[in-house]
Amino acid sequence: AGSTTLRAVGKLQVRLATKTEPKKLEKYLQKLSALPMTADILAETGIRKTVKRLRKHQHVGDFARDLAARWKKLVLVD
């Protein structure tokens, strides 16, 4: 499952970095939220930084902030 999640995170990371349409960004964040994330995947992909960049986004900022905070707890636990 780890390598599958890693690939999925990579694809979503590229999309988050290149797309600007709020509905698409929200969809990608929801998909990321549903993935079985680990501290290793967060470290290897840097996805948390990508998501943190969206914290001030008018439409998806709250979602991005919550997701980044949830992942921060995951990193602190591991």
Rank of each mutant, 00 (worst) to 15 (best):
L6T: 07
K11P: 01
Q13V: 10
L67S: 01
L42G: 02
I47W: 02
L6W: 06
R53K: 13
S33Y: 09
P22V: 07
G10V: 14
T20F: 08
D62A: 06
W71G: 01
E21T: 09
R7E: 15
L12E: 04
V9N: 00
A69T: 10
L25I: 11
I41M: 06
V51S: 00
L54V: 02
R53Q: 14
G46F: 01
L35V: 06
S33K: 07
K52D: 14
V14W: 07
V14G: 06
T45V: 00
D66T: 08
A17T: 14
G61W: 05
A64T: 03
R48Q: 12
T5W: 09
A43V: 11
K49I: 11
A17G: 12
V9E: 07
V60P: 02
V14T: 11
L42D: 05
A8I: 14
K72G: 08
E21Y: 04
R53Y: 12
Q13S: 05
I47P: 00
L35Y: 03
K11E: 15
P36N: 09
V14H: 09
Q58P: 14
K23T: 13
V9I: 04
G61L: 02
V60F: 06
A17N: 14
K19D: 15
K19G: 15
V51N: 00
H59P: 01
D62L: 02
K27P: 03
R65H: 10
I47L: 06
K23M: 13
M37F: 00
E44H: 04
I41V: 07
K19F: 14
V60C: 04
R7T: 14
V77C: 10
A34T: 11
R48L: 15
F63P: 02
G10E: 14
T4E: 15
E26P: 01
L42P: 00
L25E: 03
T5F: 11
T18G: 11
D62F: 00
D62E: 12
A1E: 15
G46N: 10
K52E: 15
K73F: 05
A43R: 09
L32A: 03
E21D: 13
M37I: 11
I41H: 02
A17H: 08
A17M: 13
H57W: 05
H59C: 10
K52F: 05
Q30G: 04
K24I: 13
A43L: 10
K73P: 08
Q30W: 04
T4W: 12
A17P: 01
T5I: 14
E26W: 06
M37A: 01
D62N: 07
K73Y: 05
A8Y: 12
R65G: 04
G61R: 02
V77Y: 10
K56A: 12
A34E: 14
T18Q: 12
T50R: 02
E26M: 13
G61T: 03
R70K: 10
V77W: 09
T45R: 00
H59I: 13
L67G: 03
K19H: 14
R53P: 01
W71Q: 02
L29D: 02
K27C: 11
A64E: 02
A68T: 09
K31F: 06
R70A: 07
V77H: 10
Y28H: 06
V60Y: 04
A8W: 14
T50A: 08
L16C: 05
V60M: 00
T50Y: 05
R15P: 04
K72L: 03
A69L: 09
L76E: 13
Q30C: 08
S33N: 10
L42M: 08
L6P: 04
H57T: 05
G46W: 04
R65Q: 09
K73L: 05
V9Y: 03
R70P: 00
K56Q: 14
Y28R: 02
E26L: 11
P36S: 07
G10A: 15
L42I: 12
Q58D: 11
R65W: 06
K31R: 09
T38Y: 00
K19Y: 15
A34L: 07
H59K: 08
R65M: 08
S33P: 03
A68I: 09
A17K: 09
L6M: 09
K72Q: 06
Q58S: 12
T5C: 10
A64S: 01
T5E: 11
S33G: 08
L29Q: 01
R55E: 15
D62K: 08
A43P: 02
R7A: 14
L54G: 01
T20S: 10
W71E: 00
K52M: 13
A68M: 08
D40S: 10
L74W: 07
L6Q: 09
K49N: 15
K52C: 14
K23C: 13
R55K: 07
T38L: 01
K73V: 06
H59R: 09
V60D: 00
E21R: 05
K31A: 14
L54H: 07
T18R: 07
L67Y: 03
K73W: 05
V9R: 04
S33Q: 08
A64F: 08
E44F: 05
K27M: 13
L76F: 13
R48W: 14
E26Q: 09
D78Q: 07
G46P: 03
T4V: 09
I47V: 08
R7Y: 07
T4S: 12
R53S: 14
L25F: 01
I47F: 02
L67E: 02
L32P: 02
K23R: 09
T38R: 03
D40H: 10
I47E: 01
K24F: 08
K72Y: 00
G2S: 12
R70H: 10
F63H: 10
A68L: 12
Q30A: 06
L29W: 02
T4H: 09
A8V: 13
A8H: 06
A43H: 09
T5V: 10
A39K: 06
K23V: 10
T18F: 08
K24Q: 13
V9Q: 03
M37N: 10
Q13R: 07
D62M: 02
D40I: 15
V51H: 00
R55T: 14
K19A: 15
A68R: 01
V77L: 10
D62Q: 10
Q30T: 05
A17R: 07
A8E: 15
T18A: 11
T38I: 03
L29R: 01
W71P: 00
Y28E: 03
R55P: 01
L25H: 00
A69Y: 03
A68K: 04
D40F: 15
E44K: 07
H57F: 09
T50M: 11
E26S: 06
K23I: 08
T45I: 01
E26T: 03
F63S: 04
L35W: 02
H59N: 08
A34V: 08
A17C: 12
L29Y: 01
L25N: 00
T45N: 00
P22I: 03
